[in-house]
Design a protein around this nucleic acid. Structure first.
Lengths: 195, 195, 195, 195
DNA sequence: AATGAATGAGCGTTCATTCAT
DNA sequence: TATGAATGAACGCTCATTCAT
């Protein structure tokens, strides 16, 4: 019973932020949707921005935790596949929060620090994977970061197009994952394209 | 002399949108910065949103045109390098507009359609390159789109981290480009990493 | 206690609309006069026009109801006198709203429909009286309407001149009523004027 | 050629004031419609209100002159008919200006003095007719004024309903005039209704 | 804890008027 | 005389936040 109202406010806010974005969502909309009084909002949240940041932060925290748990002990092509597929599934499963963030701006004053921290932690996860798998033994730390951020961007871009823009469901995850795993750069290497 | 004031307004707006974002930038800020009267703003722009969309649209249009001109006749590893480097340079050179967009949200109601169109056109450019180079002869259109969007995301993510978050200058372009060109997926394939 | 503020706003608005007219009366004037905050206005009224129409509509509604109750069972010269006198008293008693309406324009976009309805209902009241008294048994409906509207205009014009333009008080009601009752058209018919 | 532009502005203004009313008509609308530049307006008129008052004043002046010329030498029932018919025709012919006035408010701050003067002069015309015809030999001046204003209101009300609200044309003039001439007050006089 | 009426600073926009050319 | 770009004061309205109950 305790915090029941807080939960209702968060649920309502998530829904409205996703539909209309942060700026277009009024506190009065949220409380109406949540079925509580205007003043009640400020019993649980310092401000509208406080609620917003709280929501985004905890959602991204949860995602990071999922990612951290999900990567252990992968090696070889199949494992790469599982990692990419897993990441895509996380995106697909967390459409709401990603929609909210893409709608509001990852570099917005309200989210900049939160998203920076999120991407940094994602990068760390990927980087340690790269290190563990010795994919780029000759690279220094900064070069590994470049690789890590780029790989994240690769998956993220596909996820954005299919889950946010085209609004596809998890059924496309496998198809995308398969393509991403087989991706190479530039021109056909000898024999490949000709095959 | 004609359109001098319009230019001043756009310059001021670019600067303020970049610094403070769209919502925090008041029309009164823009005109003060531009040194014109409040009413003058509405002589040249239907509304604040009209100016914003106009700015974003024309900047992205320009970028697209640069990209379209810049890709011709590439083939082989070196050419791939040039393409990636060129793209990174475009990002580095257009920091302001990318900052504005990332700050405001690529899926925001004000920009959604514009950014969707931009990414689509970027994807088309990359896709036709893939087709021309026969990189993925066995892929159908949707699979090529996945590859194209992912490659864009790859470059974009690195550009975002270095040019927007870390605020680096064009001097890092070569370093990043070199890493991106040599990127492979997952574990070292037999012989590759050792080579 | 509830609706106390709404009442204060309406009172202030009535006063200001009468003095300055709708367009010259600013919402800020009204709230200052009412002693409430700017935002409070919009707690009770959708817009300035909403308040204006609401005020005019309810005042005219009240007048119509007074008129409908006031006409029963009249017959003969004396009764006609009472009817005219009653109508004049209604005008004298409702100076404020009539001033507001004449000031704003009975055919103004904001009031057109309201005044049209008001005059139509006044006409219906008078017409049914004409029917009941069999004053014009040979007339069809449209002809009765002409008579009704004209009779209203007759009283209204006198009321406008004395109560609005000259700002006289109810003390002139009897004098005007007596003249209106004895009014005839055109030249003196034989015997009439001499009588 | 001189004053050609002034004429064009007035024509445009008349049209727009009738359609949209004074407040909704912008100076920019008028000059666009008139095909002149914004600044030209102020070459011919001190202000928007100056133009408005000028238009109303000259139209009403013209009407007064028509009325003054039109009433001479009437006597008897038929003459009364001609007078009422003439007045109705004047209303029907001057729909535009009456629409403008009714739309803007005869007691509005912009028109109050002009309409007061107009009605006073109309009243004087009617009153002198009453005196000439000895219709109310026993009445003093104020009583004659009451009669005059009421008679004007009688005709005006019918004119308003048919020419402004219902937007009928001059073809209804005769019908209305006939009814107005035969109007009496109150109950049927002996024999009349029973006939 | 919960309410919801009240607040008021602040914003985007309008438009009659001016003035340099 | 004619232009039309430029002005800036002013207004209606919003909405996050507060506070008396």
């Amino acid at each position: 019973m305790r915090e029941e109202k807080q939960e209702k406010i968060i649920t309502a806010a998530l829904q409205l932020f996703e539909q209309q974005g942060y700026h277009a969502t009024k506190v009065s909309d949220i409380v109406r949707e949540a079925g509580v009084a205007q003043g009640t909002f400020y019993l649980y949240f310092k401000s509208k921005e406080d609620l917003f940041r709280g929501i985004v932060e905890s959602c991204l925290q949860e995602i990071i935790e999922t990612m951290e748990k999900g990567v252990p002990e992968l090696c070889g092509e199949t494992e790469i596949y599982r990692m990419i597929e897993g990441t895509l599934r996380v995106f697909a499963h967390n459409k709401t929060i990603f929609r909210i963030i893409y709608k509001h701006g990852i570099a917005s004053s309200e989210l900049r620090d939160i998203t920076a921290e999120f991407y940094r932690r994602m990068m760390v996860i990927v980087k340690s994977e790269l290190v563990r798998l010795r994919s780029y033994p000759e690279y220094n730390d900064e070069e590994l970061e470049i690789v890590a951020y780029s790989k994240i961007g690769m998956v993220e871009a596909a996820a954005y197009q299919w889950f946010v823009v085209k609004n596809s469901g998890p059924e496309v995850v496998e198809k995308i994952a398969r393509v991403l795993v087989n991706m190479r750069l530039g021109c056909p290497q000898e024999g490949e394209a000709a095959e």
